[in-house]
Amino acid sequence: ALLQTALANAATVDHQFTHYGEVRADIITVKTTVAEVDRAMADMTTQIQAQINDVTAVLEDKLTATVNAEGATAIHTLNTGVKV
């Protein structure tokens, strides 16, 4: 889903992965920048995942900075999860 959204927004995507049978490890970094007449936005999302069979551990780190006529925001979000 992260890759599909990135490609729809013309973002820069870096995907590194390796696998050996049922063992897999991924790192996906998506960078998006927008500069328009009345707003600017920079966003970077990094997702790392390790998986063996049905057991998965995932971390997603998202940084977003925006500025427009109403003000500015800077948001840092970290999500973690384990599926057994």
Rank of each mutant, 00 (worst) to 15 (best):
K31L: 07
A74N: 14
T77Q: 06
V23L: 15
E60G: 04
A42L: 03
H19Q: 11
Q51A: 14
Q47C: 05
A72C: 01
V23N: 09
Q49P: 01
T33I: 06
Q4Y: 15
A72N: 14
A57C: 10
D14W: 00
K83Y: 06
A74D: 01
R39L: 08
E36K: 13
T32D: 14
N9T: 08
Q16M: 05
I48G: 09
G71P: 07
M44S: 15
D61E: 10
D14K: 11
A11D: 14
G21L: 02
G81Q: 07
K31H: 03
L59D: 05
D38V: 00
K62Q: 05
K31F: 02
E22S: 05
A10Y: 13
A25G: 12
M41R: 09
G71W: 10
L78K: 15
H15F: 04
H76V: 10
A10M: 01
Y20A: 10
A50Q: 07
Y20Q: 06
N9Y: 02
N79D: 13
F17Q: 12
L2W: 00
L59S: 09
E70V: 14
V34S: 12
I52V: 05
V82G: 02
T80V: 05
L3M: 05
I27E: 12
A72K: 12
A72L: 01
N68D: 15
A1G: 11
Q47S: 15
T18S: 11
V84K: 03
V37P: 03
N68W: 15
R24Q: 10
Q4I: 10
V30R: 10
T46E: 13
T73F: 07
L7T: 14
K31D: 12
V34C: 01
L2F: 04
N9P: 04
F17P: 00
E60A: 08
T77V: 08
T77W: 00
V23A: 14
V84D: 00
T66D: 06
D14A: 03
A35K: 10
Q51V: 02
L3P: 00
T66C: 01
V82M: 04
K83M: 04
T45G: 01
M41T: 11
L63A: 15
V13K: 13
F17N: 12
T80N: 07
V13H: 11
L2C: 09
Q49M: 12
A57E: 10
N9S: 06
V82F: 14
T5I: 04
K83G: 04
D26K: 03
L3I: 13
T29F: 01
D54V: 03
V58C: 02
A42R: 13
Q51K: 09
E36N: 05
F17W: 14
K31G: 06
T73I: 03
V34W: 10
Y20D: 11
A10W: 06
A8P: 03
K31C: 02
T18N: 11
D14L: 05
V82L: 08
A35R: 05
G81V: 05
T29L: 02
A8I: 08
T66W: 01
T64W: 00
M44R: 15
V37W: 01
G71S: 04
Q4F: 07
D43Y: 07
A72Q: 13
V55T: 09
A65I: 04
L59V: 15
T5F: 03
I52S: 00
T46G: 07
V58L: 08
T66Y: 11
G81A: 10
I75R: 06
A6T: 08
I48T: 09
A6H: 12
R39E: 13
R39D: 07
T64C: 00
Q16R: 07
V23T: 12
K62V: 01
